[in-house]
Simulated scan of single mutants.
Amino acid sequence: MEFIRSELGRRRLAAAGWVCAVGIAFLLGAWSFSQADPGGQYGRPDPLTEAGVRHELGQAKQRGRTTSPAPESPSSEPSAGSTSTVRFPDGLGTARAECRAEARTVTLLSWTPGEGYSVDDVAPGPALRATVELESAADDADDPTVRIRCVHGKPQTTVERDSQADDSDADDD
């Protein structure tokens, strides 16, 4: 008992008590994590395969069609359009476009900006021209606008830069 009464003994006993408390807290925390089941909440999903992407896109298109307000009449046949992927010049991105030859319209189905760009605004159509306004990550670069139109049933692109738009605005004055 004299050991506990000495100052050194009390300090050692207090230190041993703290070490035991920390050890018990660590073990309790480890046990609680091993018993927890977040139901995959923190799991990392595997990337979609190409077939999975097609399936998800098909599901999205079907959901989009079911919300369309005007059903087609049975006597009118839907006109088939030509769908193709368009690469924007200068690596600005790509788009999936549908050309309807009889109406000479273009509809953008999807679009992806190139590296260093983000999409600022889109006018997907159907119209004679569809546009994708891109914004450069570099503040000093001109922000391009890609215009897509159908020529002989195939989508064609032209690029207009902000500096060109500014010049044409100045000509209007």
Rank of each mutant, 00 (worst) to 15 (best):
S6K: 03
E7K: 10
L8Q: 14
L8Y: 09
G9D: 01
G9T: 01
R10H: 04
R10P: 08
R11K: 13
R12Y: 10
A14Q: 07
A15K: 15
A15F: 07
A16W: 06
A16Y: 12
G17H: 09
W18E: 15
W18K: 13
W18N: 14
C20A: 10
G23E: 07
G23T: 00
I24N: 13
I24V: 14
A25N: 01
F26M: 13
L27P: 03
L27Q: 08
L28M: 10
G29C: 06
G29T: 02
S32K: 10
S34F: 07
D37L: 05
P38W: 10
G39A: 04
G40Y: 01
Y42H: 14
Y42C: 12
G43F: 04
R44T: 10
P45K: 00
P45H: 00
D46F: 01
P47G: 09
P47T: 10
P47N: 06
E50L: 13
A51N: 12
G52R: 02
G52C: 15
V53M: 13
V53F: 08
V53N: 09
V53H: 02
R54S: 11
H55S: 15
H55I: 15
L57H: 07
L57A: 07
G58C: 00
G58V: 00
Q59K: 13
K61R: 12
Q62I: 11
R63F: 05
T66I: 03
T66F: 02
P69W: 08
P71V: 00
E72R: 09
E72Y: 07
E72Q: 05
P74V: 00
S75G: 10
S75P: 02
S76Q: 06
P78C: 08
S79Y: 03
S79P: 11
S79D: 14
G81A: 12
S82Q: 15
S82E: 15
T85D: 05
V86P: 03
R87D: 05
F88A: 01
F88K: 07
P89N: 04
G91M: 08
L92Q: 00
L92G: 05
G93M: 03
G93F: 01
T94K: 01
A95W: 04
R96M: 12
R96C: 13
A97R: 05
C99S: 11
R100I: 11
A101W: 00
E102N: 10
A103F: 01
R104Y: 02
R104K: 09
T105R: 11
T105F: 07
V106F: 01
V106Q: 03
L109P: 03
W111R: 13
P113G: 08
G114L: 08
G114N: 04
Y117T: 09
V119W: 07
D120A: 13
D120H: 13
D121M: 07
V122H: 04
V122E: 13
G125L: 12
G125C: 03
P126N: 04
P126Y: 03
R129T: 14
R129W: 12
A130H: 06
A130S: 12
T131Y: 05
T131G: 04
V132Q: 01
E135C: 15
A138E: 14
D140A: 03
D140T: 08
A141D: 14
D143G: 14
D143V: 01
